[in-house]
Design a protein around this nucleic acid. Structure first.
Lengths: 138, 138
DNA sequence: GACAATCGACTACATCTGTAGTCCAATGCG
DNA sequence: CGCATTGGACTACAGATGTAGTCGATTGTC
């Protein structure tokens, strides 16, 4: 069975670590070799670098692994959404004081949203408005 | 006149550096002592720490200074919006590939938005939708 | 004019990150 | 069976970051 990670549920990930996690989130559990192979072309790390990152991710509790034969099968131990939210919260708190809305605007602008998602978000904004108080800007 | 910073326009800021920049963006040009005094209560650094951060910010080109008497008056050399955007772009590129919509929904839920801001975001979503419908150009 | 308080420059040092490399054991190949 | 290969554990090392401290010059205070 998978190694029990007695680590903190998970701290935040560095840029390189995110790159590795994305491979695992996208393709499911992978051996180090496969993660290495699946990395985007613009990421050109030595295999050993990938190994290091995988180990650090296990130490952080973001991955766990299962021994298959002589090698490990790494699997995500945290949800991608959870991590994304954590990052966004971190960004918000770092820039706090700035209005939040421009930040949201930025992501809406950049995000690749389907019509459905757009409708959904609009509904949500409506719901919020009706519930909202006499909010003054900033 | 202000020292000319022959540095890169500006790299990205660390969390602690952001804290210092926020003081200067909020209160305008300040001496180190004043930045120190103006930091939020939950930030309890030694004065020397603030000095270190100010120097690093100058080195990064995020601040410049003017000598007034025997001390420096630090002033922002980059706009807050510019920096905020940079952070957002960084985060965005780090997490790309994820479905952002659930995450956006989460933050819309938590954000304290004014009616005005809500209207604005909705307009933006509309604009996005019409743009994504390839056949249909207004 | 002597001295304490301050200033900025420089130094310190533990972590975290990016980016590998070394070493030994297990495996696969011939 | 013996060796080249591959895997994981551990080590390496420079740059960024958090968090200060030391030192010599300057200045404000009697």
């Amino acid at each position: 069975m998978p190694k029990a990670p007695r680590n903190q549920p998970s701290q935040s990930l560095s840029g390189a670590e995110w790159e590795v996690m994305k491979v695992i989130w996208n393709h499911g559990p992978q051996a180090a070799r496969d993660v290495y192979a699946a990395l985007p072309d613009d990421v050109s790390w030595a295999y050993k670098t990938v190994k290091t990152l995988l180990s650090r991710l296990v130490a952080k509790g973001a991955l766990d692994y299962e021994q298959i034969g002589n090698s490990y099968l790494y699997r995500a131990a945290v949800a991608r959404d959870q991590m994304t939210r954590k990052e966004m919260r971190g960004l918000f708190s770092r820039v706090t004081g700035a209005a939040l809305s421009p930040v949201l605007a930025h992501f809406i602008e950049e995000a690749d949203l389907s019509d459905d998602e757009i409708r959904q978000l609009k509904r949500q904004l409506d719901a919020k408005r009706s519930k909202s108080q006499k909010g003054k800007k900033r």
